[in-house]
Deep mutational scan, measured.
Amino acid sequence: VTVDIKGMEYHFDNPEEAKKFAERMAKELGGELKVENGTLKVE
């Protein structure tokens, strides 16, 4: 699973970990979490 945090890509084997990480980063950065082509994106 790929997580894109404002252009920086992180790769996770575990989808649950990827989702938790993306949600935490969205909250910390005040960004919006989206799913695009199987990639979790925070913008």
Rank of each mutant, 00 (worst) to 15 (best):
K34T: 11
E36F: 11
E16T: 09
N37K: 07
G7N: 03
A18M: 02
E16N: 07
K19T: 10
G38H: 06
F21K: 00
D13H: 08
M25K: 07
L29H: 06
K6Q: 13
V42M: 04
V3G: 01
V1A: 08
E23R: 05
V1S: 07
V3M: 02
N37D: 09
K19R: 14
Y10W: 08
N14T: 12
E32G: 07
T2V: 13
E32D: 09
G31M: 13
V1I: 12
I5W: 08
G31W: 13
E16Q: 09
K20R: 13
D13M: 09
M25F: 05
H11T: 10
I5R: 01
E23N: 04
L40M: 09
E36T: 10
E28S: 07
E28Q: 10
K41V: 12
A22V: 06
M25L: 07
E9V: 15
G30C: 13
T2K: 11
F12L: 01
V35K: 06
V42N: 03
L40W: 13
T2M: 10
P15W: 15
H11G: 02
G7E: 01
G7C: 10
E36Y: 11
F21S: 00
T2A: 05
L29K: 03
N37E: 08
E16H: 09
N37T: 06
M25Q: 05
D4V: 15
R24W: 13
P15D: 08
M8V: 14
E28R: 10
N37A: 07
E23W: 07
V42F: 05
Y10Q: 01
V3W: 01
E17M: 07
K6P: 02
E32A: 12
G7T: 02
A26P: 00
E9N: 09
V3L: 05
R24Y: 13
A18Q: 00
N14W: 03
I5A: 02
G38R: 02
K27E: 10
K34D: 04
E36R: 07
D4K: 15
E23L: 11
A18D: 00
L33W: 10
E32S: 14
N14S: 12
D13P: 09
M25N: 02
T2R: 10
K6N: 15
L40E: 03
A22S: 02
K27W: 13
D13E: 11
E17V: 05
H11L: 08
T39F: 11
V42P: 04
L33K: 02
A22C: 08
A26V: 09
E9I: 15
T2P: 02
E43W: 14
K34A: 06
A22T: 02
L29Y: 07
K27H: 11
G7I: 02
K41Q: 06
E28D: 07
K19D: 02
N14H: 06
K27S: 10
D4H: 15
K20M: 11
H11R: 11
M8A: 08
K20E: 12
V42S: 04
G31F: 12
G38V: 03
K34Q: 07
F21L: 01
E28K: 11
E23K: 07
N37W: 04
L33D: 03
E36G: 09
K41G: 05
P15R: 07
I5Y: 08
D4T: 15
R24F: 13
K34S: 09
T39K: 14
P15G: 07
F21M: 01
I5T: 01
L33T: 05
L29F: 08
G31E: 06
I5H: 03
A26H: 04
D4M: 15
L40H: 04
A18R: 01
N14F: 04
K27F: 14
T39V: 15
V3H: 01
D13Q: 10
Y10S: 01
V35T: 10
N37M: 06
G38I: 04
E9H: 14
A26W: 08
M25R: 05
F21D: 00
E36I: 14
G38D: 06
Y10L: 03
V3F: 02
A22Q: 03
V35S: 09
D13G: 08
K20G: 06
P15A: 13
E43C: 15
N14A: 04
Y10R: 02
V35M: 12
V35N: 10
A18E: 00
K34R: 13
I5C: 12
R24C: 15
H11Q: 07
M25P: 01
N37H: 08
G7V: 02
E36N: 09
M8I: 14
M25T: 03
V3Q: 01
N37V: 05
A18W: 03
L40T: 04
G38Y: 02
L33N: 03
K19M: 14
K27I: 12
N14C: 10
V42H: 03
E17Y: 04
I5F: 07
E28N: 06
E28G: 03
V1N: 06
L29Q: 05
H11E: 04
K6A: 14
K27V: 10
V42K: 02
H11A: 05
A18F: 03
L33A: 05
T39C: 11
K27P: 01
L40K: 02
K20N: 10
V1M: 12
E17T: 06
Y10V: 03
M25E: 02
E16V: 10
M25V: 07
E28C: 15
M25C: 13
D13A: 11
K6H: 14
Y10A: 01
V3R: 00
F12H: 01
M8Q: 12
E16M: 10
T2Q: 05
L33V: 15
V1R: 06
K41F: 12
E43T: 14
I5K: 01
V1Y: 14
N37P: 06
K27Q: 12
V42T: 04
E28I: 13
T2I: 14
A26Y: 04
K41C: 09
E32M: 13
D13S: 12
E9P: 08
G38C: 11
E28T: 08
N14L: 05
F21I: 00
K20L: 12
K6R: 13
D13W: 08
E28Y: 12
P15F: 15
G7H: 03
A26D: 02
K20W: 09
F12E: 00
K20V: 10
A26C: 12
G38T: 05
K41W: 09
R24G: 06
K41L: 09
H11N: 06
E28P: 02
A22M: 07
D4N: 14
N14Q: 04
E17D: 12
K6S: 13
E17P: 00
E9K: 15
K41N: 04
G30L: 07
K34E: 05
L29S: 05
G31I: 11
G31V: 11
R24L: 11
A26F: 05
K27L: 13
E9W: 13
K34C: 11
L40G: 04
K27C: 14
V3P: 01
K41E: 04
P15E: 12
K27A: 12
V42D: 03
I5G: 01
E36M: 10
P15Y: 15
F21C: 02
F21T: 00
E16A: 10
G30W: 05
K19A: 09
V35C: 15
N14G: 05
G31D: 04
F21A: 01
G38Q: 06
G31S: 07
N14P: 00
G7Y: 04
F12M: 01
E43H: 13
T39Y: 11
E17S: 07
I5D: 01
T2E: 02
M8L: 11
E23D: 08
A18V: 00
T2W: 12
V3T: 01
E9R: 15
K19G: 03
V1T: 12
F12A: 01
A26R: 06
G30R: 09
Y10K: 01
E36P: 03
A18H: 00
F12C: 09
D13N: 11
N37S: 07
E43M: 14
T39M: 13
A26N: 04
K6I: 10
F21H: 00
E9C: 15
G30A: 07
V3E: 00
T39A: 09
V1C: 14
A22I: 08
M8S: 08
G31K: 04
D13C: 14
T39I: 15
D4F: 15
E36C: 13
D13F: 07
E43I: 15
Y10N: 00
G30I: 04
A22H: 01
P15T: 08
M8D: 06
D13L: 09
V3A: 02
G31A: 12
K6E: 13
A22L: 08
R24N: 08
M25A: 07
K34N: 07
E23A: 08
L40R: 02
E28W: 13
V1G: 04
L29D: 03
E9S: 13
E17C: 12
A18K: 00
P15K: 07
K19P: 00
V35E: 11
E9G: 06
K6L: 15
P15S: 09
M8Y: 12
A22G: 04
M25Y: 06
E23I: 11
E28H: 10
N14Y: 04
P15M: 15
T39L: 12
N14R: 05
H11W: 13
E17Q: 08
V3K: 01
F21V: 00
D4Q: 14
L29P: 02
Y10T: 01
T2G: 02
E36W: 08
L33Y: 07
E23T: 06
